[in-house]
Design a protein around this nucleic acid. Structure first.
Length: 306
DNA sequence: AACGCGGGGTC
DNA sequence: GACCCAGCGTT
């Protein structure tokens, strides 16, 4: 048995014993579930997605149900997840699939890639998790695992993304896309973590270029190669555009469906949360939210987009 | 290539 | 308090 074959067998065996097979998007094999979960999981941890996913699927059990919904309702269900544009795009995907593909989730990579909010990672994720097609959804977890396994600890980076992705594809177990990629994700979430990896419990320990990783050394190296903080990082979070946008959208979520609020009232209501934000600044933020498709304006009245 | 986009958990 | 997270679209 080759080294690669042993690695595959070891990880798949570990997955059968220690994988999170009970995640709600894994218990039922439905590409629509994969679509919803992958959108929610873009830059958001599993533990926080699980309850949101369950509520979302309960309200929109099928792609057709989602396509028939309103943007405002999807945005309300999205509360707490962040990156609200994902909600807009997810609903738009459902509408487009109904219009362009007769309501059936596409399996074809180019078709998937043509949909809003579906980039290279999500194309591969839908194909691998939703259809068990041999594809490689390579996320931050898998990059970290492959870097450690094939090159050593990731600070400093010893390989570029292209090289890492190539190794990830070589490693993938043919015909087992769903379980193989799930296994890698679970390993990255539970053992081969960014912070303090548990190499002693890892099924790939013997083959790994980085193991055993000393958490203290890893931490020191990370600090050494840390990027400089961006200017926005230097100011308090409450003063950032992100925070202000979040408070505006939250206020609009709290309106009854169909209800609108004037810019003046919005400004007044948000005073406690957004002090020293002049009316003109609030107006600018609302204009950008409208451009982003989250918000609809009618004269001086504002609501979530329908 | 760099930036904007949220929010919550972790150490 | 800094770091991290099943990325994508824009510039």
């Amino acid at each position: 048995m080759s080294a690669v074959a042993r690695t595959r067998a070891a990880l798949l065996a570990w997955y059968r014993g220690h994988g999170r097979a009970n995640l709600p998007w894994r218990t039922v094999r439905d590409p629509y579930y994969t679509l919803v979960s992958e959108f929610m999981l873009q830059q958001t941890q599993v533990d926080r997605v699980v309850p949101k996913f369950l509520a979302f699927i309960e309200r929109f059990p099928t792609l057709a149900a989602l396509a028939a919904s309103s943007t405002a309702e999807v945005l309300r269900l999205w509360q707490g997840l962040g990156y609200n544009s994902r909600a807009i795009r997810l609903r738009a995907v459902a509408v487009e699939i109904v219009e362009r593909f007769g309501g059936a989730m596409p399996r074809d990579a180019d078709a998937l890639r043509s949909l809003p909010g579906i980039g290279p990672y999500t194309v591969a994720a839908i194909r691998a998790f939703g259809f068990d097609e041999d594809d490689a959804p390579i996320d931050t977890n898998i990059r970290r695992i492959v870097h450690r396994l094939c090159f050593g600890i990731e600070y400093p980076a010893l390989a570029n993304a292209k090289a890492i992705d190539a190794r990830a594809r070589e490693l993938a177990a043919p015909g087992e896309a769903h379980d193989w990629n799930s296994a890698l994700m679970d390993l990255g979430a539970t053992l081969c973590t960014a912070r303090a990896p548990k190499c002693l419990l890892c099924p790939l320990h013997a083959a790994c270029a980085a193991a055993p990783i000393d958490a203290t050394l890893l931490d020191a190296r990370r600090r050494e190669h840390a990027k400089k903080p961006s200017p926005q990082n230097a100011i308090p979070f409450e003063r950032t555009t992100r925070y202000a946008r979040g408070r505006i959208v939250d206020r609009l979520r709290s309106l009854a469906p169909g209800e609108r609020i004037s810019l003046l009232d919005l400004h007044r209501d948000l005073q406690p949360l957004l002090p020293e934000r002049p009316l003109e600044e609030l107006e600018r933020l609302v204009t950008v939210l409208e451009r982003d498709g989250l918000v609809a304006c009618d004269g001086a009245y504002i609501a979530l987009r329908d």
